[in-house]
Write a protein that binds this DNA or RNA. Sequence first.
DNA 1: AGTGTTTATCGTCAGGAAGACGACTATGAT
DNA 2: ATCATAGTCGTCTTCCTGACGATAAACACT
Lengths: 252, 252
Amino acid sequence: MPYDPSAFPPFAVTVDLVVLTVRRHALCALAVRRGESPFQGRWALPGGFVRDDEDLAQAAARELAEETGLRAHDPATPAQDHGAHLEQLATYGDPKRDPRMRVVSVAHLALAPDLPAPRAGGDASNARWAPVEELLQQGGYGRDGEPTAPLAFDHALILSDGVERARSKIEYSSLATAFCPPEFTVGELRRVYEAVWGVALDPRNFHRKVTGTPGFLVPTGGTTTRQGGRPAQLFRAGGATLLNPPMLRPEV
Amino acid sequence: MPYDPSAFPPFAVTVDLVVLTVRRHALCALAVRRGESPFQGRWALPGGFVRDDEDLAQAAARELAEETGLRAHDPATPAQDHGAHLEQLATYGDPKRDPRMRVVSVAHLALAPDLPAPRAGGDASNARWAPVEELLQQGGYGRDGEPTAPLAFDHALILSDGVERARSKIEYSSLATAFCPPEFTVGELRRVYEAVWGVALDPRNFHRKVTGTPGFLVPTGGTTTRQGGRPAQLFRAGGATLLNPPMLRPEV
DNA sequence: AGTGTTTATCGTCAGGAAGACGACTATGAT
DNA sequence: ATCATAGTCGTCTTCCTGACGATAAACACT
């Protein structure tokens, strides 16, 4: 069946990735330095064109693997393998968001445990983990003293939406475990919540909450002292994906 | 700056709408009958191509106005005007979702009060409000006895996602008021929750909950007996958009 | 007028969950 | 040995919810 291609305007479709992790008690996002115009030399979210035979999720998983080496696991399967969590975030299609042409970007959100070093096509100097506050504040100065330019395109908006999604989603799901290695302690999980929310949580109430929620955590039998202090029990993520009742984010 | 159009595959981008309302104690969605191939004669979600100079939200608002006459109000503004709630839902881009060509559809979710009659380009016979269970069950029989064919394309999936979004979102937001006329009673609001969730709620506990949540409801001073029984106080939606603590959906 | 039905609204009570916080335990560092 | 650090177990109070009794104000009958 022939179809008149002039009946609709042609678009380019890309996927952009908000890849979040927790490093040194801070919520960090993966940023890559742009090598081409526009916004040459500026930081941006990783992403690329969707190929002709790809689903959107496939394209996002491919980009994630190219940038970080992480495999994405299906959101439907429990977090057994060591892949990152990947889900669609939102789609951005302002006619002027890319000065070259009409581009619609389907942003995805990925959550990963703390990783060795990022790589952008093998070039580590063009990719980095940066605290999200540093990437989102405009015209300030980063940790290294160099002035922070705003992210390219509308990527500050996309990053902001992704961070907000992650902040709200760890309230009522077990997604915070996606930031942890396969085995982790209650304290490490608590520090994830504290980093993502930017608040301090009571260790005792947190311990009661997470260990008392059926299916959230499964003890592996081992212990560790890698955080110092008394040895802590090791857990892995249980099968439960929804937290009911949810973890409450403190106000103010 | 010239850009090589052959460097990326061209896509068509559409918006599809999940327009929900509550009619006769049932959650209903707007469906339109397809006049062209493919899926000619089958029911589908309303939608259309995004124009060259339009934002995605603008395109969704335009389609909503064309199909229902409803104006969409900005999600940021409080629900003062009589427009419908409109928000982006998700994006669907399977390479085979449209047999003709590569189409990426940015689905939007709209919530509207019970409306007179739908119109699809002025032709009422090609548009209808149908209970969502009727549209989602495949191979059954609708209320009118005619066999229900599955929705065109992947629209059953989109509708299912939209319904799930609405069901979860009225838990923790004041969005249920978008299903109500500008002035409504506590009982009418309760019947919205009951229809969307498909459960029965205790009128006394519901009344205590909604009237006790600051900013949720604002009394207008009037009363009505349009539901029969003792006259009920009339309210309009307050400025609060988030419900904290949330309205709890009964289990099982 | 009285009675029943319907819906709205207020009140009471028990159980569960969360915040605040005391107490104790088990490791490494000095 | 002492201290600092982190983990784990309890207790108490407060708030919220679910279950449900009771009253109020309309309408439809008889």
